[in-house]
Each structure stands twice: as structure tokens, then as C-alpha cells.
Design a protein around this nucleic acid. Structure first.
Lengths: 341, 341
DNA sequence: CAAACCATTGCACAGCTGTGCAATGCGCAA
DNA sequence: TTGCGCATTGCACAGCTGTGCAATGGTTTG
């Protein structure tokens, strides 16, 4: 089964075979592919030639077994085909690769959204870190991860848990700003469109907007429908616009909801935006800039977040202490779905 | 450093430690976590209890070292934040997990779109298979993969290469059908909107449509701009609609291009769709069904493709022979962007 | 009661790599 | 020339698991 000269069709080449072909010890091969190891230029060259000829590639499974780091980072994410999550995955994978790491993607959109099984997978493969982009992992699982030295990073969760690092966007500030936008545009009858299964981040936006409106003495109506998707925004629009006292300003906690809302408002109720009704979204997904929508919204600094997350991976945190969440500010993006003052 | 009783803070638990706590041999621990191995119910229970107490998880790196299979499948993809690719990734990751495999995502959107480095990564981690969703890997790299027993599956590439299995959509048939749609709607001055950097699949759609039009003696204009994105479709619309003899029917080789085209046609040129100009897209991304577009298009059977791809992984192909590509038919989805007959 | 069979279990090896330690050899200075 | 320092190299072990093989003990059958 084992032959040193040539691959026999469909088996991987090992360092031993490269060493025999190059006439050196296996250590020399290992050192050739290890940064900072001591190899003479002569043997290095011979090893590289033999490796190239045989098609050798270092086995990262075995390397990860020895070293403390496997260079695997796992991303736990639901709703991958959502524009916002897709953008986040793109940004993260790109930066991880630039840092010589590789991303494992674990999809928790299944029937029971089992983040637990996903976290187990990440432990199975000894991932250096786990980035949770959505879902609510049980605290017990997180503790297991921490006990095993796992590095857990939560993105967009507004409820700080002991141990993992948390990264959030300034949801409340932005939501108050959204109210200001609509109020200054003259809107006095407001609505918030959210989803029925929203995360803590989305709930925070909804609550903060409603609170700001109440403080200013402005009427505000909260509508929640289905999942956080286009169809839910459309359904919300049908529910709220068919009534006699329809709102003149709407804050959708997600751009996707806003797109659905705008389409129904225009195409089913014949309303013009922003003249008859103003709309503000959140996330700044690509579709928000399409000219059918031209949606005024808040930009999530996806690139900055990704930079920060990847920078966090190699730095080991203090265990079992509540880290203060790192906050990134969501900046307003002015377009045409809100009347100018 | 090594202590059998309890994790000392931040190191992983090994089977040895579980064995000592349960009072059995390490083999018993291994067999408890191996399907079909022979363990008595008594020891199995004791092992499971000890594993639970210590937080043990099988090290899949070491397991992959022994077995011929690592259960890792790598997805090589550019433009992850494109709706079509995101949908494909979602479908694939979901099915891979159902088959007890895990997905590594390699992003080749970087400056030089180096699929080669990506393929090397997949070799490093001994992936069971590599699914290439975009990009043009060099034939030499593919040969290296095949020599190492790698299973390469190409999706949406119309140029068959020796060795890897290929999965394509019936681009040509669908493109001819698109011409029929527009012709029967009375369009006699046609255009194809494509991108300047399109893949072979996109080129096939473009060519087949143009050919069908020529065969029918209908004038057709081919426009290519930038990357395959919304902005390119918009730019194409500005270029083609500002001329005096503007087309009355357009086939966009991608829904994203179609969205950009429609927005400019309506919002910048004041045209009505489908009365003044008919538009047909391709892919059936989610946005095509949004009521601002209501785009007549062709549905890529993403779920079927994903099923087939995942089913292909465990079945070893014949090497170095040109496999006939598996074809899936793209079915038309009738909406409102084409006039009824 | 004896023999045959079967399930279970432990030992030891394999799978591939990184690295400490000692040995080797070479160059340079005294 | 001799001694010292230094770069290089090979040996051997560690890291964690799966599994063939032999041994053990219990159960069933004649």
C-alpha cells in the first residue's frame, strides 16, 4: 500500500515520501514548510523540488493536532441568503483568508435551528474561534466552549453573556435618530415594522424608536409579522395601510422589511414615497440603493466589524468575566424615502 | 501540563482522560463514539457519563488522520453576497450538514481571484470533495487534485474538463425559450444584456439567444458592461435606451442585470414594462418576485442541484475521463415583465 | 458437564506532523 | 593549529484517534 516513489493513483503524499525522494530526513521537510525554522538553502531547494514533483501538501489536520491552533474559524449563521448576512460572510471570509485562516460555515436555518449541534461541530474540529452571527446559543454550551479554551465571539447580540466577546451596533442611538428624521419631516403618526421572531438587536431598535416617539408625545403603532423578510414587510403594510388612520412615517427595523413595505404601499395602495408616507430602514443592504427604493437607512459598518472580529481571534480574552460589548455606530444614509425638512 | 481528572482551564479533553475517569480503556471510549463498534451497554453508559462530565468531544482532526474521510467539503465561490450564490451556499451547507459533513467556504473574490490558492487550502485540509461554484481553476491544479484522490465538482461551467464531474443548467434551451417568449409577445427589435467578465455559462446564454434571433431573422443587439451586477444592468440600459432605435424586448442573462435595467428604463426613461419594453431575466433570485419587478425569468433548480452535488460526494468517479455533464433544466417562471400573447 | 460460540475488551500499531535535544560539521578568531 | 561558536540535521517523542488481533469471560448447545 505504501510506496515512496510515486503516488499510486488516489492517495495523498506524505512528508516521508518527499524526504526519501529528496534524500533528506523528514524533519527537513517539515522545517521547510515551517516559518522561521532552520534549513539550509540547499536542502530547502531540494525539498521544494521533490514536493512539487510529487504534489505534496502539508496535512493541516496533523499540523493542527500538534500545534495549539488549527487555523479554522467557524461561522455560525442562519439565513445565509439574506443580503445582510451574505455581506457579512463575504467580509469575514475575505479577511480570515488574509490572516491565513479558513472559515467553516455552519448553517442553523434547519427545522429546529440547533445552534447547539453547530457549536459541537466547531468543538469537534478544534476551531480557533467561533463567530456567532445569529441564533441564541444556550449559556451551557457557551460554558462548554469556554472550558475547552474556545473563543466565542457574538455579533449583533444585545444581551451580554459572561465570557464571550460581544460586538454590537448602536441600535438605540440609531433608532432615536430614525425618529428624529421622521419627526423633522413632519410625520406625526408613526409605525414600527418588526418581525415576530426578531433577535435582541431588532427588538432593541423597535423599543428605542417607540420610546423616543412616546417621549415626544407622538402616536406610534408597533406591527410584528412573521420572519424578518420581504414578505413580512409586505404583510405589515397591508395590515396597517388598510385602516382609516394610516401612518405618515414608518421605521422598518430591517431594509428587507422596508422593501416589502414600500412595494405594497406603492403598488397596492397607490401611495407615493416620500410625499404621502416616509420610510426609514436599517442595514443598508445593496437593494436599499436601487433606484426603485432609494431608501433612507442606517449603514451597518460591516467592514469595520469584520476587521475587528478577525483582529480579536488571536488575542485571548479573560475568561468568565463579562466583557463590555464593543460598539460600532450605524451612520445614517440619506436617500429619497424621507422628505427633506 | 497533563492531568486526567479535570480540565485545567483552557485545554481540550482527550479520550485518555475520559477513559481514566470511567475506569475503562481508551479503546472503549473510541468505540463508544464510533458507529457500529462493539461496546456493552454498561461501559457505553459509563463512558457517556464521564464524557458529559468532562465536556469531551471527539477530535475530528485526529479522526480524519486515520480514516480515509475528513468529512470536510470545501466550497470555492466568488461573489458570495450575490443573491444567487448566497442561495446556493445556503442550500449546499444545509444538505451537507444533513449528510454529516461540514462546509469550508473559500472566497475567491480577492484582488487576483486566486482559485489556485483556494484549491491548495482544500488539499491542506484533506477535504473529501471540492465544489467549485465560480472561477476558472487552471487545468494543472485540477490534475493535482485528482492525483491526490480529490473529488472536484464543477457547477455551472459549460466547458467540460477531463476528470471532474460537471453540473450545468440547460442554458441554451432556456435562452432559445427566452427568445420565443419575446418574439410571441410581438417584440421585433431585441437586445441581450450581459457582463464583460461573465463565465462560460453566461456566455452560452448570450450566444444561444443571439443565434435564435438571427435564425428567425430578428435584429438583436449585444451589450456587455462591467461585472455581473445591478450597476452593469443600469449602465447597459442607459447606453441602449438613449439611442433612437431602442429595443422593445431585452434578455438579461442574470436577474441582477435585469433589475438594474428595469429600474433605469422606468425611473430614468419613463418607460412602462411590459407595455413599451419587455424584459426576461435568468436565475429567479428572490428580488425577481418582488412586486417592483415581477420579472419573468428562468428558475435555476438550486435545490435539485444541491441534492445532486451532495449525493455525488461519496460516490467515487472514474478518473481522467471526460464525464458527460449532468444537465438540469431551467424552467420558465411567468410573471408580468413580458406581455401576454 | 464439556465444548463451542459469541460479545466484549485491552494492547499495540498506524496515520502525519512539529519540535526539543544532541550530534555533526563548518567557519572564524586567537 | 586549536578552540569556540553557530548553523544545520537527524533522532525520537508527543499529539489523538481508529482498528486488527488476541485474550477473556459468559452463554448456549450437545
Amino acid at each position: 500500500m505504501k510506496n515512496a516513489g510515486r503516488t499510486i493513483g488516489k492517495t495523498f503524499v506524505s512528508a516521508q515520501q518527499v524526504a526519501e525522494r529528496a534524500g533528506v530526513s523528514r524533519s527537513a521537510v517539515s522545517r521547510t514548510f515551517t516559518d522561521g525554522a532552520s534549513v539550509s538553502p540547499t536542502t530547502r531547494k531540494r525539498v521544494l523540488e521533490a514536493a512539487e514533483a510529487l504534489g505534496y501538501h502539508v496535512n493541516h489536520l496533523a499540523r493542527g493536532l500538534i500545534r495549539d491552533s488549527s487555523n479554522i474559524v467557524s461561522l455560525i449563521v442562519a439565513d445565509i441568503n439574506t443580503p445582510y448576512q451574505a455581506k457579512m460572510i463575504e467580509a469575514l471570509t475575505r479577511r480570515l483568508q488574509a490572516a491565513n485562516k479558513i472559515a467553516m460555515v455552519i448553517n442553523t436555518s434547519g427545522q429546529n435551528a440547533n445552534v447547539e449541534a453547530a457549536l459541537r461541530q466547531t468543538l469537534h474540529y478544534r476551531a480557533d474561534a467561533t463567530i456567532v452571527l445569529s441564533g441564541q446559543p444556550a449559556a451551557s454550551l457557551i460554558e462548554t466552549c469556554l472550558n475547552n479554551g474556545q473563543h466565542v465571539i457574538l455579533v449583533n447580540r444585545d444581551d451580554p453573556v459572561p465570557g464571550p466577546e460581544t460586538i454590537v451596533v448602536t441600535n438605540r442611538t440609531a433608532a432615536r435618530q430614525a425618529f428624529d428624521m421622521l419627526f423633522r419631516a413632519g410625520c406625526r403618526d408613526l409605525a414600527v415594522v418588526a418581525s415576530a421572531v426578531g433577535s435582541a438587536s431588532l427588538a432593541a431598535r423597535e423599543k428605542a424608536f417607540a420610546l423616543a416617539a412616546e417621549e415626544a408625545g407622538v402616536n406610534v403603532n408597533v406591527i410584528r409579522f412573521g420572519p424578518t423578510a420581504y414578505a413580512s414587510g409586505a404583510e405589515a403594510a397591508r395590515a396597517v395601510l388598510s385602516k382609516s388612520d394610516r401612518p405618515d412615517g414608518v421605521f422598518c427595523v430591517t431594509d428587507l422589511l422596508a422593501c416589502g413595505f414600500m412595494d405594497v404601499a406603492r403598488n397596492e395602495f397607490g401611495l407615493t414615497i416620500p410625499e404621502e408616507i416616509c420610510v426609514v430602514g436599517f442595514d443598508d443592504i445593496e437593494q436599499a440603493s436601487w433606484s426603485s427604493y432609494d431608501l433612507t437607512t442606517f449603514r451597518q459598518p460591516v467592514d469595520q466589524i469584520a476587521d475587528h472580529v478577525v483582529g480579536l481571534i488571536d488575542h485571548h480574552p479573560h475568561l468568565h468575566t463579562v466583557q463590555a460589548p464593543t460598539r460600532f455606530s450605524a451612520e445614517p444614509v440619506w436617500r429619497k424615502s424621507v422628505r427633506p425638512r
